[in-house]
Computed example of a mutant assay.
Amino acid sequence: MVSMGRKVAAFCVVVLGLLLLFVFAVNTGSLQVSPLQLFNGLFVAYDPDVATIYDLRFPRIFIAMVGGAATATSGVLLQAVIRNPLADPGIIGINAGASLAAILVTAFVPVLFYFTPLFAFAGGLVAFALVYSLSWKGGLSPLRIILVGVAVSAMFTGIASALDSGTGSSMSSVTSIVDANITMKTWSDFWTLLAYAVVGLLLAVCVWKRCDLLALSDKTARSIGVNVDRTRIFVSCIAVLLASISTAIIGPISFLGLIVPHIARLLVGSGHKTLIPFSMLLGALCLLLADTVGRTIAAPYEISAAIIMSVVGGPAFILLLRKARASYGE
């Protein structure tokens, strides 16, 4: 049981870290401004340097924060639904399904580009439905879900690669738009992401009690009057929505929806009333940190935030599992 003081301290540290990282990210690059100059340029008088930063860096920073919050929250919800600490939008194929749908819409129906998150949501739902139905055999097995999820993810990824190869790689530029790429994102991309993310994040906050109930066995939950199947489907749809809209704008990010919930549980406990909002903040911090590191570690070249998360995520997840045996069992 995590004390209230520790929870408050964890929230304060993450919020402070996010604010400091935001200021650092704003000044990462060839053009730098002081906090006072930034404030004056935004709210007092026009400043060409601040205007450039506002147009080029601010959308990228805010997209990383909102996308990170959405992806991390999706991981929390999926782990509650499936009762599997290894559940992640990337591992069980949701990201691959959403990415394929986004690529198809962008390539073949560009007039519907601004509705890409909706089509990505449909693709994510198809992927999740496949995993859920193919994993069902008198009940859900965590191992079957992971194995089927890996297979479904590989299938959708293969379809995207086949389309790319079959068209003479003419889809490569389209794929790069939605394939874990935050570079050159605009305010239009941010507002598109935010419009869907706000709905999903608000719904996620509202279902914290249902997530706690899903942690019980199905028999116990039904005995207290919970419609387990309906609750599981509803929470799953929210999780798929959050993962899909993030994938549609910034592409699939590996391990973020897997690692952040584990770190959050160690810091604030397993109660979803605090776990969900804390995971939002921590997810925003982690993805913004990955993107900022990618911009600075090989400057003037850039490394994708997805690559940073993959390189750091694997070892970090193994380390977390080794240190958290008491929480998750042998």
Rank of each mutant, 00 (worst) to 15 (best):
S153G: 14
L56H: 05
A98W: 03
T192A: 05
S172W: 06
G149R: 02
K209H: 13
L213P: 02
A51H: 11
P252D: 01
P315E: 08
W191L: 11
I297G: 08
G166M: 12
L201M: 12
P48N: 10
H272T: 04
P59G: 04
N227Y: 06
T186I: 11
P89W: 01
R232C: 07
A298E: 05
L266R: 14
S254W: 05
L289M: 15
S74Y: 00
V150A: 13
T52D: 11
A197E: 04
L18V: 02
I250T: 12
N27Q: 13
G313A: 10
G271E: 14
T296I: 12
L256N: 03
F234T: 14
L143E: 14
P261L: 05
I253A: 00
I233P: 00
S3C: 07
V111T: 10
R83N: 11
Q79L: 12
K209E: 08
E302W: 10
V235A: 09
V2Q: 06
G17L: 06
L216D: 04
L16A: 15
S3P: 01
A326N: 15
L77Y: 05
W136T: 07
S254F: 09
L19I: 13
F317N: 09
A195R: 10
V226E: 12
L31N: 10
S223D: 11
G139H: 02
L31D: 09
A107K: 01
A80T: 00
I276G: 00
I307D: 09
V311Q: 00
F58V: 08
I318L: 15
A248W: 07
D55M: 13
T116N: 04
M309E: 05
A298P: 00
T28W: 14
Y196M: 04
A80D: 07
L281P: 02
H272W: 05
G124V: 04
D212A: 02
I303D: 06
V14N: 03
L289R: 01
S304V: 04
S310L: 09
I146Q: 01
E330I: 10
C237R: 04
V178Y: 03
W187D: 07
G158M: 10
L77R: 00
K273M: 12
V81L: 09
Y196A: 08
V50H: 03
G257R: 08
L194I: 00
R144H: 08
W136L: 15
I303P: 07
L143N: 12
F190G: 08
T73F: 09
V235P: 02
C12M: 13
I253K: 00
N84K: 07
P35V: 06
L147T: 02
S165G: 05
T116W: 02
R57G: 02
A195V: 11
L242Q: 02
L21D: 06
V150G: 02
S34L: 12
V76N: 09
I276Q: 04
L202A: 13
P300D: 08
S141V: 07
K7R: 15
A248V: 02
A120M: 04
L143D: 13
R230G: 00
L285F: 15
L21N: 03
A215I: 06
I307F: 09
M4K: 15
